[in-house]
Nucleic acid binder design. Structure first.
Length: 623
DNA sequence: GTGAAGCACT
DNA sequence: CTCTGGGTGCTTCACC
Protein backbone atom coordinates (compact mmCIF):
# COMPACT_ATOMS: atom_id res chain seq x y z
CA UNK A 1 0.00 0.00 0.00
CA UNK A 2 2.75 2.36 0.98
CA UNK A 3 4.81 1.76 -2.14
CA UNK A 4 1.69 1.99 -4.28
CA UNK A 5 1.05 5.50 -3.01
CA UNK A 6 4.56 6.68 -3.74
CA UNK A 7 4.49 5.11 -7.19
CA UNK A 8 1.40 7.12 -7.98
CA UNK A 9 3.13 10.25 -6.76
CA UNK A 10 6.02 9.57 -9.10
CA UNK A 11 3.69 8.95 -11.99
CA UNK A 12 1.93 12.22 -11.34
CA UNK A 13 5.21 14.07 -11.31
CA UNK A 14 6.97 12.48 -14.24
CA UNK A 15 4.03 11.29 -16.28
CA UNK A 16 5.72 7.90 -16.68
CA UNK A 17 5.34 4.85 -14.49
CA UNK A 18 8.29 4.00 -12.29
CA UNK A 19 8.49 0.24 -12.02
CA UNK A 20 10.29 -0.26 -8.77
CA UNK A 21 11.71 -3.54 -7.59
CA UNK A 22 10.77 -4.92 -4.17
CA UNK A 23 11.65 -7.87 -2.00
CA UNK A 24 8.91 -9.79 -3.83
CA UNK A 25 10.25 -9.13 -7.32
CA UNK A 26 13.99 -9.56 -6.78
CA UNK A 27 15.62 -12.88 -6.07
CA UNK A 28 17.44 -12.95 -2.76
CA UNK A 29 18.97 -15.28 -0.23
CA UNK A 30 18.15 -14.14 3.28
CA UNK A 31 18.88 -16.59 6.09
CA UNK A 32 17.97 -16.75 9.75
CA UNK A 33 20.92 -18.02 11.81
CA UNK A 34 20.48 -19.31 15.35
CA UNK A 35 22.82 -22.28 15.48
CA UNK A 36 26.05 -21.27 17.19
CA UNK A 37 28.24 -23.27 14.84
CA UNK A 38 26.62 -21.55 11.87
CA UNK A 39 27.07 -18.13 13.45
CA UNK A 40 30.75 -18.86 14.02
CA UNK A 41 31.06 -19.97 10.42
CA UNK A 42 29.51 -16.66 9.26
CA UNK A 43 31.94 -14.74 11.47
CA UNK A 44 34.83 -16.59 9.83
CA UNK A 45 33.55 -15.71 6.39
CA UNK A 46 33.07 -12.05 7.40
CA UNK A 47 36.66 -11.94 8.59
CA UNK A 48 37.81 -13.11 5.17
CA UNK A 49 36.13 -10.16 3.48
CA UNK A 50 37.57 -6.72 2.89
CA UNK A 51 34.26 -5.20 3.87
CA UNK A 52 30.77 -6.08 5.04
CA UNK A 53 27.58 -4.35 6.01
CA UNK A 54 25.79 -4.77 9.30
CA UNK A 55 22.59 -3.42 10.79
CA UNK A 56 21.20 -3.82 14.29
CA UNK A 57 17.49 -4.27 14.99
CA UNK A 58 16.57 -2.80 18.35
CA UNK A 59 13.67 -1.97 20.63
CA UNK A 60 13.78 1.78 20.06
CA UNK A 61 15.31 4.84 18.41
CA UNK A 62 17.17 6.01 21.52
CA UNK A 63 20.48 4.15 21.22
CA UNK A 64 21.45 4.54 24.86
CA UNK A 65 18.19 3.03 26.11
CA UNK A 66 17.51 0.50 23.33
CA UNK A 67 18.08 -3.24 23.50
CA UNK A 68 19.46 -5.15 20.54
CA UNK A 69 16.99 -7.69 19.18
CA UNK A 70 19.13 -8.95 16.32
CA UNK A 71 21.95 -8.14 13.92
CA UNK A 72 21.92 -8.53 10.13
CA UNK A 73 25.03 -8.95 7.98
CA UNK A 74 25.64 -8.81 4.26
CA UNK A 75 28.88 -9.15 2.33
CA UNK A 76 27.49 -10.02 -1.09
CA UNK A 77 24.68 -8.54 -3.13
CA UNK A 78 21.25 -10.13 -2.51
CA UNK A 79 22.62 -12.30 0.26
CA UNK A 80 22.23 -11.60 3.97
CA UNK A 81 22.00 -13.23 7.40
CA UNK A 82 19.93 -12.32 10.41
CA UNK A 83 21.09 -13.35 13.86
CA UNK A 84 18.54 -12.90 16.64
CA UNK A 85 19.93 -11.89 20.03
CA UNK A 86 18.35 -13.81 22.92
CA UNK A 87 16.31 -11.66 25.31
CA UNK A 88 18.07 -13.00 28.40
CA UNK A 89 21.31 -11.32 29.39
CA UNK A 90 23.54 -14.42 29.40
CA UNK A 91 22.24 -15.70 26.10
CA UNK A 92 22.68 -12.25 24.56
CA UNK A 93 26.25 -11.89 25.75
CA UNK A 94 27.10 -15.32 24.42
CA UNK A 95 25.94 -14.49 20.89
CA UNK A 96 27.41 -10.99 21.09
CA UNK A 97 30.78 -12.47 22.03
CA UNK A 98 30.73 -14.45 18.81
CA UNK A 99 29.70 -11.45 16.70
CA UNK A 100 32.35 -9.28 18.32
CA UNK A 101 35.00 -11.38 16.55
CA UNK A 102 33.78 -9.89 13.29
CA UNK A 103 32.69 -6.43 14.48
CA UNK A 104 35.93 -5.74 16.35
CA UNK A 105 38.17 -6.88 13.52
CA UNK A 106 40.24 -3.78 12.66
CA UNK A 107 41.05 -5.09 9.19
CA UNK A 108 37.55 -5.13 7.73
CA UNK A 109 35.60 -2.10 6.56
CA UNK A 110 32.21 -1.84 8.28
CA UNK A 111 29.37 -0.45 6.21
CA UNK A 112 26.16 0.90 7.67
CA UNK A 113 23.35 3.39 7.32
CA UNK A 114 23.61 5.83 10.25
CA UNK A 115 26.27 3.55 11.67
CA UNK A 116 26.80 5.71 14.78
CA UNK A 117 23.53 4.30 16.07
CA UNK A 118 24.70 0.71 15.71
CA UNK A 119 28.13 1.46 17.18
CA UNK A 120 26.52 3.14 20.16
CA UNK A 121 23.92 0.50 20.84
CA UNK A 122 26.60 -2.20 20.69
CA UNK A 123 28.81 -0.41 23.21
CA UNK A 124 26.38 -1.45 25.95
CA UNK A 125 27.14 -5.05 25.06
CA UNK A 126 30.82 -4.31 25.36
CA UNK A 127 31.32 -4.51 21.62
CA UNK A 128 33.73 -1.89 20.32
CA UNK A 129 33.30 -1.76 16.56
CA UNK A 130 36.77 -1.37 15.04
CA UNK A 131 38.23 -0.77 11.60
CA UNK A 132 37.41 1.77 8.95
CA UNK A 133 33.77 2.77 8.45
CA UNK A 134 31.49 3.67 5.60
CA UNK A 135 28.14 5.28 6.24
CA UNK A 136 25.72 5.64 3.34
CA UNK A 137 23.81 8.37 5.16
CA UNK A 138 26.90 10.49 5.79
CA UNK A 139 28.24 9.92 2.31
CA UNK A 140 24.99 11.07 0.78
CA UNK A 141 24.93 14.07 3.13
CA UNK A 142 28.12 15.30 1.47
CA UNK A 143 26.70 14.75 -1.99
CA UNK A 144 23.35 16.43 -1.31
CA UNK A 145 23.42 18.11 2.11
CA UNK A 146 19.93 19.54 1.93
CA UNK A 147 17.91 16.47 1.00
CA UNK A 148 16.85 13.44 3.01
CA UNK A 149 19.28 10.58 3.52
CA UNK A 150 17.01 7.77 4.69
CA UNK A 151 17.76 4.29 3.39
CA UNK A 152 14.37 4.09 1.70
CA UNK A 153 14.86 7.24 -0.38
CA UNK A 154 18.45 6.30 -1.23
CA UNK A 155 17.30 2.85 -2.35
CA UNK A 156 14.68 4.39 -4.59
CA UNK A 157 17.07 6.94 -6.00
CA UNK A 158 20.14 4.76 -6.54
CA UNK A 159 18.73 1.27 -6.94
CA UNK A 160 15.18 1.88 -8.14
CA UNK A 161 14.19 -0.39 -5.29
CA UNK A 162 11.50 0.03 -2.69
CA UNK A 163 12.46 -1.59 0.62
CA UNK A 164 10.01 -3.15 3.07
CA UNK A 165 8.54 -0.36 5.15
CA UNK A 166 8.97 -0.53 8.90
CA UNK A 167 5.21 -0.04 9.26
CA UNK A 168 4.67 -3.29 7.38
CA UNK A 169 6.14 -5.22 10.26
CA UNK A 170 5.47 -2.96 13.26
CA UNK A 171 2.15 -1.48 12.22
CA UNK A 172 1.27 2.20 11.78
CA UNK A 173 3.13 4.80 13.80
CA UNK A 174 1.45 5.67 17.08
CA UNK A 175 1.11 4.30 20.55
CA UNK A 176 -0.15 1.00 19.25
CA UNK A 177 2.89 0.44 17.09
CA UNK A 178 4.57 -2.84 17.91
CA UNK A 179 8.13 -3.16 19.11
CA UNK A 180 10.84 -5.29 17.53
CA UNK A 181 10.86 -7.29 20.77
CA UNK A 182 7.20 -8.23 20.16
CA UNK A 183 8.09 -10.04 16.93
CA UNK A 184 9.47 -13.49 16.23
CA UNK A 185 12.92 -13.54 14.58
CA UNK A 186 11.30 -15.08 11.51
CA UNK A 187 9.09 -12.02 11.20
CA UNK A 188 12.10 -9.66 11.37
CA UNK A 189 14.45 -11.67 9.16
CA UNK A 190 13.45 -10.36 5.73
CA UNK A 191 13.28 -6.75 6.86
CA UNK A 192 16.65 -6.88 8.62
CA UNK A 193 18.44 -8.79 5.88
CA UNK A 194 17.07 -6.47 3.24
CA UNK A 195 18.38 -3.45 5.17
CA UNK A 196 21.88 -4.90 5.29
CA UNK A 197 21.74 -6.06 1.67
CA UNK A 198 20.45 -2.75 0.31
CA UNK A 199 22.90 -0.70 2.39
CA UNK A 200 25.75 -2.78 0.98
CA UNK A 201 24.49 -2.21 -2.55
CA UNK A 202 24.09 1.51 -1.87
CA UNK A 203 27.66 1.71 -0.65
CA UNK A 204 29.06 0.71 -4.03
CA UNK A 205 27.03 3.33 -5.87
CA UNK A 206 27.45 6.15 -3.39
CA UNK A 207 31.18 5.53 -2.89
CA UNK A 208 31.66 5.97 -6.65
CA UNK A 209 29.85 9.26 -6.55
CA UNK A 210 31.89 10.41 -3.55
CA UNK A 211 35.10 9.80 -5.51
CA UNK A 212 33.74 11.41 -8.64
CA UNK A 213 32.65 14.55 -6.79
CA UNK A 214 35.90 14.84 -4.85
CA UNK A 215 34.55 14.21 -1.35
CA UNK A 216 36.80 11.25 -0.51
CA UNK A 217 39.10 13.11 1.85
CA UNK A 218 36.31 15.00 3.59
CA UNK A 219 34.45 11.73 4.14
CA UNK A 220 37.37 9.51 5.10
CA UNK A 221 39.44 11.99 7.09
CA UNK A 222 36.71 13.95 8.84
CA UNK A 223 33.13 12.70 8.79
CA UNK A 224 33.75 8.98 9.19
CA UNK A 225 36.41 9.24 11.92
CA UNK A 226 34.07 11.67 13.68
CA UNK A 227 31.42 8.94 13.92
CA UNK A 228 33.44 7.14 16.58
CA UNK A 229 34.13 10.38 18.41
CA UNK A 230 30.44 11.26 18.58
CA UNK A 231 29.45 7.74 19.56
CA UNK A 232 31.91 7.96 22.43
CA UNK A 233 30.62 11.39 23.52
CA UNK A 234 27.02 10.26 23.43
CA UNK A 235 27.89 7.10 25.33
CA UNK A 236 29.62 9.08 28.09
CA UNK A 237 26.86 11.66 28.45
CA UNK A 238 26.94 14.42 31.03
CA UNK A 239 25.96 14.49 34.69
CA UNK A 240 23.15 16.78 35.78
CA UNK A 241 22.59 18.20 39.26
CA UNK A 242 18.90 17.32 39.56
CA UNK A 243 18.49 18.93 42.96
CA UNK A 244 19.69 22.26 41.63
CA UNK A 245 17.14 22.03 38.82
CA UNK A 246 14.33 21.12 41.19
CA UNK A 247 15.09 24.21 43.25
CA UNK A 248 15.16 26.37 40.12
CA UNK A 249 11.87 24.94 38.96
CA UNK A 250 10.20 25.99 42.17
CA UNK A 251 11.65 29.46 41.95
CA UNK A 252 10.66 29.92 38.32
CA UNK A 253 7.14 28.74 39.11
CA UNK A 254 6.81 31.37 41.82
CA UNK A 255 8.25 34.15 39.68
CA UNK A 256 5.97 33.12 36.83
CA UNK A 257 2.88 33.30 39.01
CA UNK A 258 3.90 36.73 40.24
CA UNK A 259 4.33 38.01 36.70
CA UNK A 260 1.05 36.39 35.69
CA UNK A 261 -0.86 38.07 38.52
CA UNK A 262 0.46 41.48 37.51
CA UNK A 263 -0.40 40.85 33.88
CA UNK A 264 -3.97 39.87 34.76
CA UNK A 265 -4.28 42.94 36.96
CA UNK A 266 -3.22 45.32 34.20
CA UNK A 267 -5.27 43.46 31.59
CA UNK A 268 -8.32 43.55 33.85
CA UNK A 269 -9.04 39.86 33.24
CA UNK A 270 -7.53 36.41 33.13
CA UNK A 271 -6.44 34.77 29.88
CA UNK A 272 -3.87 32.34 28.54
CA UNK A 273 -0.69 34.39 28.25
CA UNK A 274 1.00 31.57 26.37
CA UNK A 275 -1.55 31.85 23.57
CA UNK A 276 -0.25 34.38 21.05
CA UNK A 277 -3.81 34.77 19.75
CA UNK A 278 -5.36 35.63 23.12
CA UNK A 279 -2.38 37.76 24.08
CA UNK A 280 -2.61 39.78 20.88
CA UNK A 281 -6.31 40.43 21.45
CA UNK A 282 -5.73 41.63 24.99
CA UNK A 283 -2.83 43.91 24.06
CA UNK A 284 -4.13 45.40 20.87
CA UNK A 285 -7.96 45.04 20.81
CA UNK A 286 -8.63 45.65 24.49
CA UNK A 287 -5.72 47.70 25.82
CA UNK A 288 -4.94 49.29 22.44
CA UNK A 289 -1.25 49.58 23.23
CA UNK A 290 -0.43 50.79 19.73
CA UNK A 291 -2.37 52.41 16.89
CA UNK A 292 -1.38 50.06 14.13
CA UNK A 293 -0.26 46.72 15.51
CA UNK A 294 1.91 44.55 13.29
CA UNK A 295 0.32 41.36 12.06
CA UNK A 296 1.87 38.01 11.31
CA UNK A 297 1.46 36.42 7.90
CA UNK A 298 -1.54 34.48 9.20
CA UNK A 299 -3.28 37.68 10.22
CA UNK A 300 -2.75 37.40 13.95
CA UNK A 301 -1.26 40.24 15.97
CA UNK A 302 2.50 39.81 16.22
CA UNK A 303 3.56 39.58 19.85
CA UNK A 304 7.15 38.45 19.48
CA UNK A 305 10.08 39.55 21.57
CA UNK A 306 11.03 42.31 19.16
CA UNK A 307 7.59 43.92 19.34
CA UNK A 308 7.18 43.65 23.10
CA UNK A 309 10.70 44.93 23.83
CA UNK A 310 9.91 48.20 22.12
CA UNK A 311 6.73 48.55 24.20
CA UNK A 312 8.34 47.49 27.47
CA UNK A 313 9.52 50.98 28.39
CA UNK A 314 6.10 52.60 28.27
CA UNK A 315 3.91 49.64 29.13
CA UNK A 316 4.53 47.62 32.25
CA UNK A 317 2.42 44.77 30.89
CA UNK A 318 4.81 44.23 27.96
CA UNK A 319 7.77 44.03 30.32
CA UNK A 320 5.90 41.56 32.50
CA UNK A 321 4.94 39.40 29.53
CA UNK A 322 8.59 39.20 28.47
CA UNK A 323 9.48 38.22 32.01
CA UNK A 324 6.71 35.61 32.08
CA UNK A 325 7.81 34.20 28.75
CA UNK A 326 11.40 33.92 29.88
CA UNK A 327 10.47 32.01 33.03
CA UNK A 328 8.11 29.69 31.20
CA UNK A 329 10.67 28.98 28.52
CA UNK A 330 13.43 28.23 30.99
CA UNK A 331 11.17 26.07 33.09
CA UNK A 332 9.50 23.99 30.40
CA UNK A 333 12.37 23.64 27.95
CA UNK A 334 15.27 23.13 30.34
CA UNK A 335 14.68 23.03 34.07
CA UNK A 336 11.77 20.57 34.02
CA UNK A 337 12.74 18.74 30.82
CA UNK A 338 16.35 17.85 31.53
CA UNK A 339 15.75 15.68 34.62
CA UNK A 340 13.29 13.62 32.58
CA UNK A 341 16.07 12.82 30.13
CA UNK A 342 18.41 11.33 32.71
CA UNK A 343 19.23 7.76 31.81
CA UNK A 344 18.32 5.28 34.56
CA UNK A 345 21.37 3.23 33.66
CA UNK A 346 24.02 5.75 34.66
CA UNK A 347 22.15 8.82 35.89
CA UNK A 348 23.54 10.92 33.04
CA UNK A 349 22.10 12.75 30.03
CA UNK A 350 22.92 11.39 26.58
CA UNK A 351 22.21 13.67 23.65
CA UNK A 352 22.05 12.47 20.05
CA UNK A 353 24.28 14.43 17.69
CA UNK A 354 22.95 14.53 14.18
CA UNK A 355 25.77 14.62 11.67
CA UNK A 356 23.62 14.85 8.56
CA UNK A 357 21.00 17.57 8.97
CA UNK A 358 22.59 21.01 8.97
CA UNK A 359 23.09 22.21 5.40
CA UNK A 360 26.33 23.99 6.30
CA UNK A 361 28.10 21.00 7.86
CA UNK A 362 27.44 21.84 11.47
CA UNK A 363 26.31 19.21 13.92
CA UNK A 364 22.95 19.40 15.57
CA UNK A 365 21.93 18.01 18.93
CA UNK A 366 18.64 16.60 20.11
CA UNK A 367 16.91 14.57 22.81
CA UNK A 368 17.89 16.78 24.53
CA UNK A 369 19.37 19.64 22.55
CA UNK A 370 22.54 20.50 24.46
CA UNK A 371 23.53 23.16 21.95
CA UNK A 372 20.99 25.73 23.07
CA UNK A 373 21.41 25.73 26.85
CA UNK A 374 20.86 29.35 27.96
CA UNK A 375 23.73 31.72 28.74
CA UNK A 376 22.53 35.21 27.81
CA UNK A 377 20.36 36.17 30.79
CA UNK A 378 21.27 35.86 34.48
CA UNK A 379 18.41 33.48 35.27
CA UNK A 380 19.06 31.45 32.12
CA UNK A 381 22.75 30.95 32.67
CA UNK A 382 22.04 29.52 36.13
CA UNK A 383 20.98 26.38 34.28
CA UNK A 384 24.59 25.78 33.29
CA UNK A 385 25.45 25.35 36.95
CA UNK A 386 23.46 22.12 36.81
CA UNK A 387 25.88 20.62 34.27
CA UNK A 388 28.47 19.04 36.54
CA UNK A 389 31.35 16.55 36.45
CA UNK A 390 31.04 12.98 37.72
CA UNK A 391 32.31 13.90 41.19
CA UNK A 392 34.71 15.95 43.28
CA UNK A 393 37.61 14.18 41.64
CA UNK A 394 36.68 15.61 38.23
CA UNK A 395 36.21 19.06 36.69
CA UNK A 396 34.60 20.30 33.51
CA UNK A 397 36.91 21.84 30.93
CA UNK A 398 35.44 24.15 28.32
CA UNK A 399 37.49 25.28 25.32
CA UNK A 400 36.09 27.52 22.63
CA UNK A 401 37.34 29.14 19.47
CA UNK A 402 37.36 32.88 19.84
CA UNK A 403 35.64 34.62 16.89
CA UNK A 404 36.44 31.74 14.60
CA UNK A 405 34.02 32.82 11.89
CA UNK A 406 35.34 36.37 11.69
CA UNK A 407 38.90 35.05 11.62
CA UNK A 408 37.96 32.80 8.73
CA UNK A 409 36.34 35.70 6.91
CA UNK A 410 39.53 37.72 7.35
CA UNK A 411 41.71 34.84 6.15
CA UNK A 412 39.54 33.94 3.15
CA UNK A 413 39.23 37.60 2.17
CA UNK A 414 42.96 38.18 2.64
CA UNK A 415 41.92 41.46 4.23
CA UNK A 416 45.12 42.97 5.59
CA UNK A 417 43.65 45.39 8.14
CA UNK A 418 41.59 42.64 9.75
CA UNK A 419 44.31 40.00 9.53
CA UNK A 420 46.62 42.50 11.15
CA UNK A 421 44.21 43.09 14.02
CA UNK A 422 43.95 39.36 14.71
CA UNK A 423 47.69 38.76 14.33
CA UNK A 424 48.38 41.41 16.94
CA UNK A 425 45.78 40.06 19.30
CA UNK A 426 43.77 43.26 19.32
CA UNK A 427 40.16 43.53 20.49
CA UNK A 428 38.57 43.05 17.10
CA UNK A 429 35.28 44.81 17.87
CA UNK A 430 37.03 47.84 19.38
CA UNK A 431 39.45 47.94 16.45
CA UNK A 432 36.53 47.83 14.05
CA UNK A 433 34.78 50.61 15.99
CA UNK A 434 37.87 52.83 15.85
CA UNK A 435 38.10 52.39 12.09
CA UNK A 436 34.41 52.73 11.29
CA UNK A 437 33.81 55.74 13.56
CA UNK A 438 37.21 57.25 12.74
CA UNK A 439 38.49 57.66 16.28
CA UNK A 440 41.56 56.38 18.09
CA UNK A 441 41.35 53.04 19.87
CA UNK A 442 41.17 54.61 23.33
CA UNK A 443 38.34 56.89 22.27
CA UNK A 444 36.08 53.92 21.50
CA UNK A 445 33.20 53.92 23.97
CA UNK A 446 31.02 50.89 24.84
CA UNK A 447 28.23 51.98 22.48
CA UNK A 448 30.60 52.24 19.55
CA UNK A 449 32.07 48.85 20.37
CA UNK A 450 28.61 47.29 20.61
CA UNK A 451 27.68 48.69 17.22
CA UNK A 452 30.92 47.49 15.65
CA UNK A 453 30.37 44.04 17.13
CA UNK A 454 26.91 43.90 15.58
CA UNK A 455 28.38 44.89 12.20
CA UNK A 456 31.06 42.22 12.48
CA UNK A 457 28.40 39.61 13.12
CA UNK A 458 26.28 40.98 10.33
CA UNK A 459 29.16 40.71 7.86
CA UNK A 460 29.32 36.97 8.39
CA UNK A 461 25.63 36.66 7.57
CA UNK A 462 25.59 38.91 4.51
CA UNK A 463 24.08 41.92 6.22
CA UNK A 464 21.64 44.52 4.90
CA UNK A 465 21.36 48.09 6.15
CA UNK A 466 17.77 47.39 7.16
CA UNK A 467 18.76 44.49 9.32
CA UNK A 468 21.60 46.31 10.99
CA UNK A 469 19.33 49.26 11.73
CA UNK A 470 16.84 46.86 13.33
CA UNK A 471 19.50 45.28 15.49
CA UNK A 472 20.99 48.56 16.61
CA UNK A 473 17.69 50.40 16.73
CA UNK A 474 19.07 53.22 14.60
CA UNK A 475 17.81 54.82 11.36
CA UNK A 476 18.42 52.87 8.20
CA UNK A 477 20.49 55.63 6.65
CA UNK A 478 22.88 55.68 9.58
CA UNK A 479 23.23 51.92 9.38
CA UNK A 480 23.99 52.28 5.69
CA UNK A 481 26.72 54.82 6.45
CA UNK A 482 28.29 52.46 8.99
CA UNK A 483 28.35 49.63 6.48
CA UNK A 484 29.84 51.93 3.85
CA UNK A 485 32.60 53.00 6.25
CA UNK A 486 33.19 49.37 7.17
CA UNK A 487 33.80 48.36 3.59
CA UNK A 488 36.14 51.30 3.05
CA UNK A 489 38.21 50.25 6.05
CA UNK A 490 38.12 46.54 5.17
CA UNK A 491 38.17 46.53 1.36
CA UNK A 492 39.26 42.90 1.23
CA UNK A 493 36.06 41.85 2.99
CA UNK A 494 33.96 43.73 0.46
CA UNK A 495 35.87 42.20 -2.44
CA UNK A 496 35.57 38.71 -0.95
CA UNK A 497 31.81 39.05 -0.51
CA UNK A 498 31.35 40.19 -4.09
CA UNK A 499 33.60 37.45 -5.43
CA UNK A 500 31.83 34.78 -3.38
CA UNK A 501 28.52 35.74 -4.93
CA UNK A 502 30.01 35.93 -8.43
CA UNK A 503 31.56 32.50 -8.08
CA UNK A 504 28.34 31.08 -6.70
CA UNK A 505 26.37 32.48 -9.64
CA UNK A 506 28.75 30.76 -12.01
CA UNK A 507 28.94 27.35 -10.30
CA UNK A 508 25.64 27.30 -8.41
CA UNK A 509 27.42 26.08 -5.31
CA UNK A 510 29.89 27.30 -2.73
CA UNK A 511 32.40 25.31 -0.74
CA UNK A 512 34.27 25.23 2.55
CA UNK A 513 37.96 24.98 3.35
CA UNK A 514 37.70 21.17 3.23
CA UNK A 515 35.64 21.11 0.04
CA UNK A 516 32.24 20.62 1.63
CA UNK A 517 29.67 21.88 -0.80
CA UNK A 518 26.42 23.73 -0.50
CA UNK A 519 24.29 24.09 -3.60
CA UNK A 520 22.65 27.47 -4.19
CA UNK A 521 20.33 26.74 -7.05
CA UNK A 522 18.37 29.95 -6.49
CA UNK A 523 21.41 32.17 -6.86
CA UNK A 524 20.42 33.12 -10.42
CA UNK A 525 16.71 33.29 -9.69
CA UNK A 526 14.71 36.26 -10.98
CA UNK A 527 12.88 36.23 -7.65
CA UNK A 528 14.75 38.84 -5.61
CA UNK A 529 13.84 37.32 -2.25
CA UNK A 530 15.06 33.87 -3.20
CA UNK A 531 18.16 35.27 -4.85
CA UNK A 532 18.94 37.40 -1.83
CA UNK A 533 18.66 34.37 0.41
CA UNK A 534 21.05 32.45 -1.83
CA UNK A 535 23.46 35.38 -1.93
CA UNK A 536 23.60 35.58 1.85
CA UNK A 537 24.23 31.86 1.92
CA UNK A 538 27.02 32.28 -0.61
CA UNK A 539 28.77 34.39 2.01
CA UNK A 540 27.73 32.58 5.17
CA UNK A 541 27.90 28.91 4.17
CA UNK A 542 31.65 28.81 3.42
CA UNK A 543 32.41 30.61 6.69
CA UNK A 544 30.03 28.70 8.96
CA UNK A 545 30.82 25.46 7.17
CA UNK A 546 34.58 25.92 7.39
CA UNK A 547 34.28 26.58 11.11
CA UNK A 548 32.37 23.30 11.32
CA UNK A 549 35.10 21.51 9.34
CA UNK A 550 37.77 22.87 11.64
CA UNK A 551 36.19 21.91 14.94
CA UNK A 552 35.46 18.45 13.53
CA UNK A 553 39.15 18.03 12.67
CA UNK A 554 40.06 19.18 16.16
CA UNK A 555 37.62 16.70 17.69
CA UNK A 556 39.07 13.77 15.78
CA UNK A 557 42.63 14.80 16.67
CA UNK A 558 41.80 15.32 20.34
CA UNK A 559 39.96 12.00 20.53
CA UNK A 560 42.94 10.19 19.01
CA UNK A 561 45.37 11.98 21.30
CA UNK A 562 43.41 11.15 24.46
CA UNK A 563 43.33 7.53 23.37
CA UNK A 564 47.00 7.36 22.44
CA UNK A 565 48.00 8.82 25.79
CA UNK A 566 45.57 6.54 27.66
CA UNK A 567 44.10 9.55 29.44
CA UNK A 568 40.89 9.26 31.44
CA UNK A 569 39.56 12.62 30.26
CA UNK A 570 36.48 12.42 28.06
CA UNK A 571 35.12 14.79 25.44
CA UNK A 572 31.43 15.06 26.32
CA UNK A 573 29.85 18.01 24.45
CA UNK A 574 30.22 20.13 21.32
CA UNK A 575 28.46 23.48 20.86
CA UNK A 576 29.56 24.63 17.38
CA UNK A 577 32.72 26.47 18.46
CA UNK A 578 33.12 24.98 21.93
CA UNK A 579 34.19 21.60 23.27
CA UNK A 580 33.47 20.40 26.80
CA UNK A 581 35.47 17.71 28.59
CA UNK A 582 35.09 15.83 31.83
CA UNK A 583 38.57 15.69 33.29
CA UNK A 584 40.06 13.94 36.34
CA UNK A 585 41.62 16.60 38.59
CA UNK A 586 45.14 15.33 38.07
CA UNK A 587 44.89 15.60 34.27
CA UNK A 588 43.53 19.15 34.26
CA UNK A 589 46.57 21.18 33.23
CA UNK A 590 47.96 18.65 30.80
CA UNK A 591 44.69 18.08 28.99
CA UNK A 592 43.78 21.76 28.95
CA UNK A 593 47.10 22.70 27.38
CA UNK A 594 46.94 20.05 24.71
CA UNK A 595 43.28 20.57 23.88
CA UNK A 596 44.01 24.24 23.24
CA UNK A 597 47.03 23.32 21.14
CA UNK A 598 45.13 20.76 19.08
CA UNK A 599 42.22 23.13 18.49
CA UNK A 600 44.56 25.92 17.40
CA UNK A 601 46.49 23.69 15.05
CA UNK A 602 43.54 21.97 13.35
CA UNK A 603 44.18 24.16 10.31
CA UNK A 604 46.97 26.48 9.29
CA UNK A 605 45.78 29.85 8.07
CA UNK A 606 47.31 33.29 7.90
CA UNK A 607 45.07 34.29 10.80
CA UNK A 608 45.84 32.58 14.13
CA UNK A 609 43.07 30.51 15.71
CA UNK A 610 42.70 31.65 19.29
CA UNK A 611 41.19 29.27 21.85
CA UNK A 612 39.91 30.24 25.28
CA UNK A 613 39.79 27.50 27.88
CA UNK A 614 38.54 27.35 31.44
CA UNK A 615 38.00 24.80 34.16
CA UNK A 616 35.34 24.61 36.86
CA UNK A 617 33.05 22.62 39.09
CA UNK A 618 30.21 23.22 36.60
CA UNK A 619 29.71 24.31 33.02
CA UNK A 620 29.11 27.96 33.92
CA UNK A 621 32.29 28.20 35.96
CA UNK A 622 34.31 26.48 33.25
CA UNK A 623 33.41 29.24 30.82
C1' DG B 1 -0.80 14.58 13.62
C1' DT B 2 0.77 19.14 11.69
C1' DG B 3 1.92 23.97 11.16
C1' DA B 4 2.66 28.42 13.19
C1' DA B 5 4.55 31.28 16.64
C1' DG B 6 7.90 32.07 19.74
C1' DC B 7 12.53 31.55 21.59
C1' DA B 8 16.89 29.09 23.36
C1' DC B 9 21.90 28.71 21.38
C1' DT B 10 25.93 29.82 17.96
C1' DC C 1 8.97 50.33 -3.89
C1' DT C 2 9.78 45.74 -1.41
C1' DC C 3 12.30 42.89 1.31
C1' DT C 4 15.32 42.40 4.65
C1' DG C 5 21.00 37.72 9.00
C1' DG C 6 23.24 32.12 8.61
C1' DG C 7 22.19 27.46 11.14
C1' DT C 8 19.49 24.43 14.44
C1' DG C 9 15.60 21.99 18.13
C1' DC C 10 11.81 22.31 21.57
C1' DT C 11 7.35 23.85 23.57
C1' DT C 12 2.88 25.47 23.26
C1' DC C 13 -1.25 26.61 20.95
C1' DA C 14 -4.62 25.95 17.48
C1' DC C 15 -6.63 23.45 14.08
C1' DC C 16 -7.56 19.18 11.33
Amino acid sequence: MFSQASKEAIELETGTPAPRATIDTVSHDYKLLTDHAEIKELVNVLNEQQEFCFDTETTGVDAVEAQVVGVAFSYEKSKAFYIPIPMNKDGAMEVMAMLSKALENPKTLKIGQNIKYDILVLKKYNIHVAGALFDTMLAHYLIEPETKHGMDVLAEQYLNYSPVSITEILGPKGKNQKNMADLEPSEIKDYACEDADITLQLKQKIADEIDKEGFTKLLNDIELPLVNVLAQMEFEGVRIDEQALTAMSKELQEESLKAQAEIFKIAGREFNIASPKQLGEVLFDELKLVEKPKKTKTGQYATGEEILSKLANQHEIAAKILEFREYQKLKSTYVDALPKMVSPGDGRIHTDYNQAVAATGRLSSNNPNLQNIPIRTPKGREIRKAFVPAGDDHVLLSADYSQIELRLAAAFAQDEPMIDAFKNGRDIHATTAAKVFKVSLDEVDPTMRRKAKEVNFGIIYGISAFCLSQNLNIPRGVAGDIIKAYFEEFPGIKRYMDESIEKAKEKEYVETIMGRRRYLRDINSRNATMRGYAERNAINAPIQGSAADIIKIAMVNIHNWLKKESLKSKMIMQVHDELVFEVPNEETDYVKGNVVKLMMSAVDLEVPMEVEAGVGENWLKAH
